[in-house]
Amino acid sequence: MKNKMLSRIIPLLLGLLLSLPAQSRVLVLGQVSERPDKDYEQLRPMVEHAAAQLSSLGVSGGDVRLYLESGELVAAMRRGEVDWVTETAYTAARLVHEAGARPLLRKWKRGQRDYQGIIYTRADSPVHGLNDLAGQTIAFEDADSFSSYYLPRMLLEQQGLQLRPMESLQQSAEPGLVSYIFSRTEENNALWVHKSLSAAGALNNNDWDNPTRVPPGLRSDLRIIYRSASYPRALELVSAGLEPALATALRHLLLSMTPETSAELLARYEQTTGFEPILPDDMQLLNDIYESSRTW
């Protein structure tokens, strides 16, 4: 009798559980940022819009969380505190390999589908190629930057050059090595090279062409000595723990947004002009980035 009662009650309980609405959750968008106030205002409208559109899947709201460096973002995603990330390839590679993140889409950021890393010097400098930087200094922008740290460093190492970090601009370059320091901003990067505080600098071609970041008065006295191949401008990723149905719905939502249908929202989202599917070579690129940077 007892077994018969259980056989009737269990299906009823299962039916009740399945009929309950999905547990509400906040969708969290994360990024590495040194300008939290500005970046928060850029990201907030998009995650709030996505949360509203995905409410039928149990999303009750959207939030933005910003981190000073990629290691903090990796740890937060591991702890399940971040669901969705918009980042460049270097941080994306770390998130994939260290936090199990899944690439969702490519992002056209600031109107660019892809971009290049450039290395430059003063127009009157004796430096004309990468090998001339042995015994000289170079200013990278930030340790989490793909185009202004990972990429130029990789290019220099592929030339057989060894790099050494500097604590300040007052340090002397070490003979035979490329000594590097972080400028933290694009403006500092250009100024340091222009004032010969650093023999060379590294930026992406979008920053190089942006007059608010490299004023024309400075750029006219500078000269590019190396331009890399093109790489994805930015990627959207989701955490390993994000429900597959929610990740799929987010992907479809972003792909449906165009400058014609969502101009203002996309413009606020780091001047995005659209999204496109991940390409077959993108995972290999992220693998290569991660493997080559592990010894740094």
Rank of each mutant, 00 (worst) to 15 (best):
D142R: 00
D142V: 01
D142G: 05
D142Q: 03
A143M: 05
D144F: 03
D144H: 08
D144M: 04
D144N: 14
S145P: 04
S145E: 04
S145L: 06
S148W: 02
Y149C: 00
Y150G: 01
L151A: 10
L151M: 11
P152G: 02
P152F: 09
P152L: 08
R153Y: 05
R153H: 10
R153G: 00
R153D: 06
R153S: 05
M154I: 02
L155F: 07
L155Y: 05
L155V: 06
L155E: 12
L156P: 01
L156K: 04
L156S: 07
E157L: 08
E157S: 06
Q158Y: 08
Q159P: 12
G160P: 04
G160T: 11
G160M: 12
G160D: 08
Q162E: 09
L163H: 01
E167K: 11
E167C: 01
E167A: 13
L169G: 11
Q170D: 13
Q170F: 12
Q170C: 08
Q171E: 15
S172C: 10
S172N: 12
A173L: 01
E174V: 13
E174P: 00
E174C: 06
P175E: 05
G176F: 10
G176D: 06
L177M: 10
L177I: 00
S179L: 05
Y180G: 03
I181M: 02
I181F: 03
F182P: 04
R184K: 13
R184S: 11
T185I: 13
N189M: 08
N189I: 07
A190K: 01
L191W: 09
L191H: 09
W192A: 06
W192K: 09
V193Q: 01
V193D: 01
V193S: 00
H194G: 04
H194V: 06
H194A: 15
K195Y: 13
K195C: 10
K195F: 15
S196V: 09
S196K: 15
S196H: 14
S196F: 09
S198H: 11
S198Q: 13
S198T: 15
S198C: 14
A199N: 12
A202L: 03
A202W: 07
L203P: 00
L203E: 08
L203Q: 10
N205D: 15
N206H: 13
W208F: 10
W208R: 06
W208I: 10
D209Q: 15
P211A: 15
P215L: 13
P215M: 06
